[in-house]
Write a protein that binds this DNA or RNA. Sequence first.
DNA 1: TTTTAGCACTCCGCCCGTGGGAGTGCTAAG
DNA 2: CTTAGCACTCCCACGGGCGGAGTGCTAAAA
Lengths: 345, 345
Amino acid sequence: MDERKRRILQAIVEDYVLTAEPVGSRTIARKYGLGVSAATIRNEMADLEEMGYVEQPHASAGRIPSDRGYRFYVDELMEVKPLPPWVVERVQELCEGRVRAMEAVLQQVARLLSEVTNSLAILVGPQAGEMVFRSLDLVPVGPSRALLVAVADLGLLESGMVEVPADLTPAELHYISQVLTRGLRGLSVQALSHTILRELQAELARYRQVLEQVLEILVASAREQVPDRMYLVGLSTLLSQPEFHDRERLRAVISVLEQEVLAKYLLMVSTEREQEAGVTVSIGRENPLGEVRDLSLVFTPYRVGVSRGRLAVVGPKRMDYGRVVGAVADFERLLSDLLGRWALV
Amino acid sequence: MDERKRRILQAIVEDYVLTAEPVGSRTIARKYGLGVSAATIRNEMADLEEMGYVEQPHASAGRIPSDRGYRFYVDELMEVKPLPPWVVERVQELCEGRVRAMEAVLQQVARLLSEVTNSLAILVGPQAGEMVFRSLDLVPVGPSRALLVAVADLGLLESGMVEVPADLTPAELHYISQVLTRGLRGLSVQALSHTILRELQAELARYRQVLEQVLEILVASAREQVPDRMYLVGLSTLLSQPEFHDRERLRAVISVLEQEVLAKYLLMVSTEREQEAGVTVSIGRENPLGEVRDLSLVFTPYRVGVSRGRLAVVGPKRMDYGRVVGAVADFERLLSDLLGRWALV
DNA sequence: TTTTAGCACTCCGCCCGTGGGAGTGCTAAG
DNA sequence: CTTAGCACTCCCACGGGCGGAGTGCTAAAA
């Protein structure tokens, strides 16, 4: 793979990304002055095809990159483009502005990411199981009911209604809350349930009924695979791409996105390669969207306090990888830096 | 509009709904035995066209119903079909099962509604502003922060972080909570903010800073136009309809649905005709989806305690109105009956 | 040995004309 | 008022022809 081949492959990818049409030797010779003639480029292209980096949609057409070609481009050739400054500023404003809920911020950030990449943006907040437990409170409401309020490092973790015996005093409720808070504070939410059991046997045997309900709520919350909310913005942009000319393909994409399989994958991937933060690019069949082989996915986790959210862009294989990877990387950095404020110190 | 015309119009609508193709006089004579010949039907169809109930896509094709034709069909001709029993049972299971959060139930119900109508189903929970306030609690978390937990008749209304002076004791927080709860209980959430102001002047002047934050959170919550979550299921089903053959139309639909214009409309409609519960059908240009004139919307509010949620099905104009209206009506009844359990007594 | 020009060939996509089919409106008879 | 017959209209699917873009190959030039 000499320098010239690299530059030709680069030209093919970039021109194809731009035009969505197979690119021929002529075009390359003209638009991307390599100082050689079209004939030479034809020879090189034949080589590239043999090596599996490009392919021909049909016998006498130009070349388009293969998955392998894109992969090489992403790994070796592309130039990561930073986010334009106005976007950076906008994200900062969003994160620092007076907003009550993290959710509203994430929603807007997702919209921005979608606009700037011209693709589908997916943002998920931190997963409950990964948060750190802080406190628990049973607030009496009505005669024999209490609202369980569980707080984690990122704010409200979970709430739910609990039936309590009518003769239980507010003071007793408060006592239960305090014991549980003391016992559980600082644990990862995933680890709660075991600990709760021990606690239960010891100090709070009298309130078994209440405890069981609390336990149920917390366990359910920790088990939740997919985060509370998943912000998915830009479907219509994605659909305007020419690759979705035929409707069957399109339906496939939509129904994949509609099932939340995707979110699950996002989490999976990131637990798999737990350690390595950083942007991952899955191209075509590499990606996990089942039969949909025309999409690429650019993915990264981001930090919020001690837990992590996930951030992804889904676009056609034929996307501007330099720009998208740059955008995703920059968004990750921005969010990791700026969302710290949501973590309770 | 004599009986025969009615039956012919009915045949046209029902056949068109079935086949998505313009229906000719022949077809009607053969498939919907009216005891007259095709020629007669041709004459009647010419009349119907003059009256504006049907139209011809081009000079020598069959007829398709006009918006007005559909309207007449819905108002006078269609037979409302009840939900199949297994669906009813399924909804009952869902609503009565041991589930923690109303949200999970609504999500599933939306999916079911989508499946049974083969269209896009939209379900929104009760709007915050319509709920009845019950209690408020400030739970201390960390050194100078408290979590505001506001509870309404349907459970958790809102939560948010509040900065408190470091020297404020838990007892004082509790005091504030109690005063506020006492003052606000029983009010509609929309009415809170005014009352809070009076309360503030009187008893709690010392805690102005805290109160302001509480106020801000509650007001924001009451102002929220669109309910917390909107469940939108079945987009891919909708897209498989033949009317979305051409992509521009399709994009239009998706981008309309993506912006939450729709949800806002749902609320608007229902505040407009505040009193009349019951199913509303908007056909084609009657519907509020802007430029999208090929969709119809079947809509109804449903009760949850004293507030209301909204329920809708979006499908092509060419939908089986009898079935969809039946389904929406039945779902409304089921939900209104079964979701009462979420209301705090 | 590598590069280049020339050339014949291939294949796609488009245009266009044509024929069949479906459905209509009209007319005249029952 | 209904019906049969008929001429007419319009859509659409089919197929041939053609232009264009791009290739691979060969032979000559660097």
